[in-house]
């Protein structure tokens, strides 16, 4: 597959944002804020970095993607549909009875590797995958996305220490550091202090970036793939904006778990089309 340009990837991210907003509006419930903050990293993983085969979702040598913050699955679903893991029309069934697109992802959905949604659990699952792939001498890598609020869960750190013990250089974590959680800012609810320093203390190689800047994301993924010679697990701390790209959602905690109504959806689509906060 020909490597996509930054501009092409930005267009894909834009389309995913459009799909996220539309799906959530139609479903009448879901989590727009976080879905929009992780969209750029998800786009880079699925459309540039990972080895996948949409026609053979269980291909043995594929890279694995674990969405530990499972509530932002609309962004992942949109990416999977665009890649052809399932028809794009299926996106219209988000959160409907009988849909493969559950409110939080499960393995009925092609391309989803593990069910998530209960926060703090995905990193351990990703660690298990990374260990198993190493046992089988596979070159596949495991990408896991977690939230900053989620890092308040103790299991994240249990998994992190295991990643260090087994020197899982095939594990790449991305912390969606949008500084907001349901009850307010992470500093108000439970200060994380410096997550990069924390993961570093747990033995990770750290990359601090703007997690909504496609060029920086791609440079970082290149650096991890080409220039990291340590056996340490990797952690990208991505500073992001919750609700990124939609004027009235940006940095508003209340848009964590509320779907836009029709008018709000139209406004959101206008913002996205106008590259709001990206220009």
């Amino acid at each position: 597959m020909k490597k996509k340009t930054i501009e092409e990837l930005k267009e894909i991210a834009k389309d995913i944002r459009r799909k996220v907003v539309t799906m959530l509006c139609r479903a009448g419930s879901g989590h727009p804020g976080g879905s929009l903050s992780v969209t750029d990293f998800i786009t880079a993983c699925y459309f540039s970095e990972m080895n996948l085969d949409p026609k053979n979702p269980k291909w043995e040598d594929r890279d694995r993607f674990v969405l530990s913050k499972g509530h932002v699955c609309p962004a992942q679903y949109a990416a999977l549909a665009k890649l052809g893991f399932f028809p794009e029309e299926t996106l219209q069934t988000l959160r409907e009875e009988g849909s493969i697109l559950q409110g939080h992802p499960n393995m009925q959905c092609p391309g989803v590797e593990i069910p998530t949604g209960s926060l703090g659990q995905g990193v351990a699952c990703a660690v298990g995958m990374a260990i198993a792939l190493k046992m089988d001498k596979k070159n596949s890598r495991v990408f896991a996305v977690l939230g900053d609020g989620e890092c308040q869960e103790g299991e994240v750190w249990e998994a992190a220490q295991t990643a260090n013990k087994y020197q899982l250089d095939n594990l790449i974590l991305f912390v969606d550091n949008n500084n907001l959680q349901i009850d307010g800012t992470t500093d108000e609810v439970m200060p994380n202090r410096d997550l990069g320093e924390k993961f570093k203390a747990f033995g990770f190689e750290i990359y601090n970036i703007d997690g909504n800047d496609m060029a920086q994301i791609l440079r970082t993924l290149d650096a991890v793939r080409l220039h990291s010679h340590s056996t340490k697990p990797k952690c990208i701390i991505g500073q992001t904006t919750k609700g990124k790209g939609v004027s009235f959602m940006e940095n508003v905690a209340d848009w964590h778990g509320v779907a836009p109504n029709k008018e709000q959806c139209e406004q959101a689509l206008k913002d996205i089309d106008a590259n709001y906060s990206f220009e």
Binding site: I114, A124, C125, G128, I131, E158
Partner: peptide, 13 residues
């Protein structure tokens, strides 16, 4: 807790 998650991840492989 993490042991359970690791087991799940390994089982998927």
């Amino acid at each position: 807790q993490n042991a359970a998650g690791i087991a799940a991840g390994m089982a998927t492989c």
